[in-house]
Design a protein around this nucleic acid. Structure first.
Lengths: 256, 256
DNA sequence: GACTGTGAACACGTTCACAGCG
DNA sequence: CGCTGTGAACGTGTTCACAGTC
């Protein structure tokens, strides 16, 4: 299939050109490529090879080329990819040409930090509302936004045209908040509460559980320890000198 | 293979019984099962079927059974799994029988929140040290811990027997911190900075990038919008009524 | 000559469906 | 009879290696 597919003029917001349906694994990596591309652009690069970009994004080059090929043919053989063009393409596919409004529910410990996180604003999102169920938190101003009561969600959703809900409440409150978000038409939720959410079909939930990440690392620690404890046939000298030498290899991919 | 493998008496800390090397996907789900099991135990359940546990963990039952079968045979046919026994097993495999010490580097916006996050303490970890490169932050007390300068890392690593490093610095500082962690013998790193880390072989890195999670959701939003905008052959009535009805389905898995 | 785009081979993960055990 | 444990079938994702193009 060497027909150069252009899924739509990225600049134009009018026509909706039926996105190619990418493999989930590819979708999850596009943001990483995008970040790497922005770094390259800032460093003054106008083009980059699959080798160069893949190194910057911490993947291997074959995977990168396969991923990008799903978007269409935006590279030039013998040269590489045009950095600016590729940024434009990926941002278009990810739907970042419009700055999406995010409602953050739960301004406790974690919610506070998220409300102040620069990375959202700089990478395509606008925190449009802060909400909490605790009346004593309502009215507090964080980063220029006033915390409103979660029951005002219906009004907020309309006012701010909320596209994504972020749940940063305790686990016990999360399902109720999810229901409220769904009820006002939110179809994408990022859940930081350590629990499973039930949502209707068509609503996407992604979860981030900080303790789980540590537990996965713990498994690998445990595993490494059990291996070095039984030094099967020598060769464990390497693991015995943890100090000193500087980092060299590229990022180790565990699961992702 | 119906030999009942018992990878070692979970209670004993002495012998190291060579862990079965589980598929990564399974390892990533064990913490979820563990959380669900603790909830069940708190609710007074003594046994649970694969159906019941899988529902509580938000996966399907075949996957759960396959995952658990990798640990050995801890279920009883016709009955189900003993909740307490399974908790013990999973905690053993994940290496949670010892409470691992975590060093958190970077106590800015996000670091502050992580330092105060209860979930770490309640699920097998101890935040043993807070570090920062900014002298104006050194000395500050957060949640009973005093922030120390990152250059004290060698001393801290020995004092506290640090097993895992968490990086919550800006991207520009992350690689240097990673190098410092590796230099003091840390072989597991959880990275919240939006960048790729280079580490030597044998060091595990997991990353959490909050903006990437939103960008993945954004893709799906974009996609849903492009589908409903072109209502191919009717049947889009469902997607047209976002308000009202309560949540019913089980958690939607996007990638993970 | 250099580098992309891609079929084909391979590895991994998931689901099915049922044998076998309590 | 009910439920686990698991081969076998299937699907997804990754890697290889090279044909095709600039």
């Amino acid at each position: 299939m060497s027909q150069h597919r252009h899924p739509g003029a990225p600049g134009r917001a009018g026509a909706v050109p039926a996105l190619p349906d990418l493999p989930e694994a590819t979708v999850a990596r596009l943001p990483e490529y995008l970040r790497a591309l922005h770094n390259l652009a800032d460093a003054g690069h106008e083009t980059v090879s699959s080798e160069g970009l893949s190194a910057a994004a911490g993947v291997n080059s074959a995977k990168l080329r396969k991923d990008l090929s799903h978007l269409g043919s935006y590279g030039t053989r013998g040269v590489g990819y045009d950095v600016a063009l590729l940024i434009e393409q990926i941002e278009y596919v990810l739907g970042l040409t419009q700055r999406r409004a995010v409602a953050l529910v739960g301004v406790g410990n974690l919610g506070h930090a998220l409300a102040g996180y620069d990375g959202f604003a700089s990478r395509g999102f606008r925190i449009a509302a802060l909400l909490d169920a605790d009346p004593s938190r309502v009215g507090e101003e964080i980063n220029g936004l006033v915390v409103r009561h979660v029951d005002e969600l219906p009004a907020v959703a309309v006012e701010e045209c909320i596209a994504i809900g972020v749940i940063a409440t305790p686990a016990a409150a999360a399902q109720r908040v999810a229901d409220q978000l769904v009820a006002v038409g939110v179809t994408s939720i990022l859940n930081f509460a350590p629990c499973v959410l039930s949502v209707p079909e068509g609503v996407d939930v992604r979860k981030v559980d900080l303790a789980i990440e540590l537990q996965i690392l713990s498994f690998h620690e445990h595993r490494k320890a059990s291996l070095t404890a039984l030094p099967a046939t020598g060769g464990s000298a390497l693991t015995a000198l943890p100090g000193g030498l500087a980092a060299t290899d590229t990022q180790e991919a565990i699961g992702t």
